[in-house]
Structures are given as C-alpha cells and as structure tokens.
C-alpha cells in the first residue's frame, strides 16, 4: 500500500477523534483518585472493558464518512481498502494508547490485575476484543446506513443492551459467543476463547463488508 502520509493522516483527523477519548481517559484517572485505591481495579475494568470499546465504536462510526474532502479522495486512484484502513487505524491506535497509559497509571496507583485476569495477555484482550468488535460494527452500520450518526447511535444501543443483559447473553446458547463484555467481565466463563474467536471473526466479516460497501462510492457523496 503506497501513498500513506502519517503527517497528513494526523492533520486531516478530526479533533474529536482525539479529545473525546482523552476526556474519558482523564475522567477515569480522576475517578481513581477520588474513589480511592480500593476501587482502582473496578475502575480499570470498567474503563478498559466498557468505556474504551464504546468510544472506539462511536469514533469508528464517524471515522470514514465525516471526511470533508471525501469526493476529492474518491476521485484519486487510492484503493478503497486503504481509505477504510487509513480512517479506522488511527481510531484503534488512539484507543490503544489510552488503554496502555491507563493501565500504567493504574499499576502505579497499586492496582493488581492478577486478581481478575490470569495473565497479561488476558488484560489486553479485555479491551482489545470488544474495542475491535464495536469499532467494526460502528463502521459497518454507518456505511450501511450511509449516515455516521446512525452508526454511532446503533452501536451505542447495542453496547447498552449487551451491558445491561450481559448475564442473559452469557447464558444463551448463541448469545455467549457474541457478548462483547465477556473478555473484560467474565474471564472464567467456559466459552471465553470461543467468544473471542467468534467476535474476532465477526469483526473481520464486518470490516470486509464495510470495504465492499465503501466501494460503492456514489452512496457517500
């Protein structure tokens, strides 16, 4: 893939792609200090497992279509997949930076992740799997509806329904594979690895479908 300029990738990103995640990051850092050390782990699980995926989903819903120069971009020989990845990857990188720095702050404040998560990889999967899933979902819905806000709203609704009814999903024969909160909140669930595999596969399918949708450029101008 040619013609990627990191400089212009940053310069053409919308400011809310940065300040929106940063605002939540700062809020949860402050919460740690306000609520005290005994709640740091709970805060961390909430932030990593619920807030980062939601923010990633919403940001991804707005990432592709809210490009003021989208018609000019479509008139260049850039491949559609590159356009899609150029807009989605910065969202994921920002969520990753938020997740990693938050963990460092939490560790510095005395959080012991081993209380919940068996190993370091599971800590990272706790935010990565739901974030990638909701990001792919947000992007797909916004492209399917050709409307970013619809993508963000539906992603938020799915997030809310899954969060509230997570026990029902976790106990369901099919639902257990598609519960985005299993990695952060139910690490001892017997279907955890199957859930992670299913969500990863679903994310890939949604990104592929988004790519196919974006190829029909005229829908978005």
């Amino acid at each position: 893939m040619k013609r990627i300029s990191l400089r212009y990738l940053l310069l053409t990103s919308r400011y809310d792609q940065i300040w929106f995640p940063l605002a939540f990051w700062a809020l949860f850092i402050i919460l740690n200090f306000v609520r005290g050390q005994q709640y740091v782990l709970d805060n961390t699980r909430s932030y990593l497992g619920a807030v980062i995926p939601l923010v990633g989903g919403i940001m991804s819903a707005y990432a592709v279509l809210e490009d003021p120069a989208i018609e000019l971009r479509f008139a260049t020989p850039i491949r559609t997949l590159q356009t899609l990845l150029e807009r989605l990857l910065p969202v994921l990188v920002i969520q990753m930076l938020c997740a990693v720095t938050y963990q460092l702050v939490a560790l510095a404040y005395g959080a012991d992740f081993s209380t919940y998560y068996p190993n370091w990889i599971d800590v990272q999967l706790a935010w990565l799997i739901p974030t990638v899933s909701l990001s792919a979902l947000g992007c797909f819905i916004s492209l399917a509806a050709a409307h970013s806000t619809t993508g963000a709203l539906l992603t938020g609704m799915i997030w809310l329904v899954q969060l509230v009814a997570r026990s029902w999903f976790a106990g369901g024969r099919v639902g257990q594979y598609f519960l985005v909160f299993m990695s952060p909140l139910m690490v001892e669930h017997p279907a955890l690895r199957a859930n992670q595999s299913a969500l990863t596969s679903l994310s890939l399918v949604l990104i592929f479908a988004s790519w196919m949708l974006l190829r029909r450029q005229e829908r978005y101008i």
């Binding site: 040619k2 013609r3 300029s5 212009y8 310069l11 053409t12 490009d67 003021p68 120069a69 989208i70 018609e71 000019l72 971009r73 008139a75 260049t76 020989p77 850039i78 101008i221």
Partner: peptide
Amino acid sequence: YLPQELGMYLELSARQFVDYMAILKG
C-alpha cells in the same frame, strides 16, 4: 477533478492541502 461542492480540510494551508492531494494521486 473539481466537484460542484468542494469539501476541503479547512485547518490545512493551501500548500498542505495540495501536497496531500498530490500524495493521494501518487
């Protein structure tokens, strides 16, 4: 191509914008 409704990145300078489009055009 100059479309009817010309959308641009308003925070970029003209030089940056044209440079970016040049990169996209290869």
